[in-house]
Nucleic acid binder design. Structure first.
Lengths: 339, 339
DNA sequence: AACCTGACTGTAATCGATTACATATAGTCA
DNA sequence: TGACTATATGTAATCGATTACAGTCAGGTT
């Protein structure tokens, strides 16, 4: 590797001058600048990133903790993160945690070893290990979608899940539905509680009691949707509308419902969350809640970099707008509840 | 930040001893080790990653260049990359290029600045800029799926696209199809040529002439499938089978065909490539070529690390097995070509 | 002529580690 | 006891940059 020393010798100047030529050319006379640039070219010199980082104490990298990479919704967020980071001169270290706490800890500890300047968490767990917890002072951390558990208050970019769930429920109620099934994703998260609370609040207003037996599921997977429908259809009074907590679940639900010989939306209406790319091309196209995933990723980076630069945060919670996309997987109840 | 100096003072030893305690404890007496560990704990010391990297000359990071993140097939590969990297003590820098050459150059130059030790390319372009090209000696680079263009021969982990395309075509021929449409992805790639050649070879053997007007498309997107079908259906003799070069295209094709009031597979058979997660849950479930994406990612990392460690490569081209998944989007021709 | 200023460049300290080399101490053996 | 060895630790050089500080020199001012 060619280093700054070689270049300085080649140009017949000191290393300081080389460094200045590259970092702050105005400090160097045009003649010297020229000499140095020639030497740089000739030697094919590129400053060693690690050396610069040691000196400046900044890595210009951020870690992104993501439970898995197969969920297209996460990828939209990460796309936003990546592009905003790139624009601001940061690079993104990908931390696929597979939901494992120890992997989270490992990645989170990158902040403590100066390997990364900040962390974006897409899951809801406190990312640091118990051993590290007392060291994390106010390390730059932002969460997207989920609020981070624990005492420390980290800024969060999220959706108004309560309102979104209310909107979905209202939409279905307006079609005359009164019997609802819910296929949930990860149960232990704030999102889950908010959405469920949103649904129940509307039902309460309509005087409908939500039967807890109508709540199934437990992870954001297609298979959860398939199994969820199987369970719901064995109930004495199957629901006429099924609210799925993401589009993958909804895709599984569509599949299972049709497999049972029932039609969507004539027999059962189905809704999702996220508006993944394929949602609009399902048969029928999926009614779902659009989340500005890309934008959420971008905002997360902006807020994170604010923290990194020790700028005061204007607020610790940012709620981005959703929109309910009414497609063809929802429709009027055809046969009224025989109950 | 607590550094090694502080810890050494706290423990009453030299920095060398602290470093040895953490890196090679056998060199240190049990008593001193104990003292140091206590000091490390108390100070909450974590070695500065950047400093270690400067000294060792290794970053233990790899860059992954990916044209976009929304393609779930890429994400399966990256998942494999990420996990293999993690196991081997490497971390992954995500380089979303959006197909832009300058972004590729920027990310690729991380190898020249010691920011990363190796690079995995998921696209087909030579990732370095012209300026850098003479510097890249034998920097560790591996490509997955696509062969990298240019003179330099980089190892590649790929699928036997020719054979896979032949298998798909044979499958359709066995159902009696004789009139084929093809909706292609990125035209300028090796994959494209291999697959097209595979299809044509089978057709030639069957004495079928491939009508070049039946080749449409140009990018790996759902919309390409939708538009592709629209074009193909305006042909004087619409095809009875459509081969799509990835599942996203196929999903768009299914959607468009049904929108035209035709049935799959009764009127038109459709096939994809990749076997993305949703493929099995389409209506009808998609016949597609399964690629071992996760495994390809893992292998790429292994081969890359071999290069990083300057171990000789046993071979520069590795072809992983595909399997044709026959689902319900393909079936016998119902109405024989009226031709 | 003496002094000052500003532009440019070099010397050397520094970032936070690792490690070659030197040194000290205790233990072993003839 | 003296020589030798092994073990443990410290000193200081080193990785490849950045930058505070100091020095040089030309030109301008009084």
């Amino acid at each position: 590797m060619t280093n700054i020393k070689k270049v300085s010798e080649l140009a017949g100047v000191s290393t300081a001058t080389v460094s200045r030529t590259l970092k702050d050319p105005d400090l160097v006379s045009p003649q010297t600048r020229e000499k140095v640039m020639v030497a740089v070219q000739q030697a094919g010199y590129r400053p060693n990133w690690m050396a610069t980082s040691v000196k400046t104490g900044k890595s210009n990298s951020i870690v992104v903790l993501v439970p898995n990479l197969v969920n297209p919704f996460f990828m939209r967020i990460i796309e936003g993160i990546e592009q905003a980071a790139q624009e601001k001169g940061y690079s993104v270290l990908l931390g696929d945690t597979q939901g494992s706490a120890s992997r989270e800890h490992e990645y989170a500890s990158m902040l403590l070893t100066n390997r990364a300047d900040g962390l974006i968490q897409l899951d809801h767990s406190f990312p640091f290990s118990q051993d590290d917890a007392h060291l994390v002072g106010n390390l730059p951390v932002v969460s997207v979608c989920e609020r981070i558990e624990g005492d420390k208050k980290y800024p969060v970019i999220e959706l108004d899940n309560y309102a979104a769930a209310r909107a979905v429920t209202h939409h279905l109620i307006s079609y005359g539905h009164r019997s609802f099934g819910v296929i949930a994703g990860q149960i232990s998260s704030q999102i889950h509680h908010d959405r469920l609370a949103g649904i129940k609040s509307v039902l309460a207003e309509e005087g409908i009691v939500f039967d807890e037996a109508m709540l199934v599921g437990g992870s954001y997977k297609i298979e959860t949707g398939v199994e969820g429908v199987q369970q719901l259809l064995t109930r004495a009074q199957p629901p006429t509308a099924i609210i799925c907590f993401n589009d993958d679940i909804a895709i599984g639900a569509l599949y299972a419902i049709k497999k049972h010989g029932l039609r969507v939306p004539q027999d059962i209406s189905v809704t999702g969350f996220d508006n993944v790319r394929v949602a609009a091309y399902m048969d029928p196209p999926l009614t779902t809640v659009d989340q500005p995933a890309y934008q959420m990723g971008r905002r997360a980076v902006e807020v994170l970099i604010q923290q990194i630069n020790r700028q005061p945060l204007t607020r610790t919670r940012e709620i981005l707008p959703f929109s309910l996309l009414e497609r063809q997987s929802t429709g009027p109840v055809s046969k009224p509840n025989q109950h």
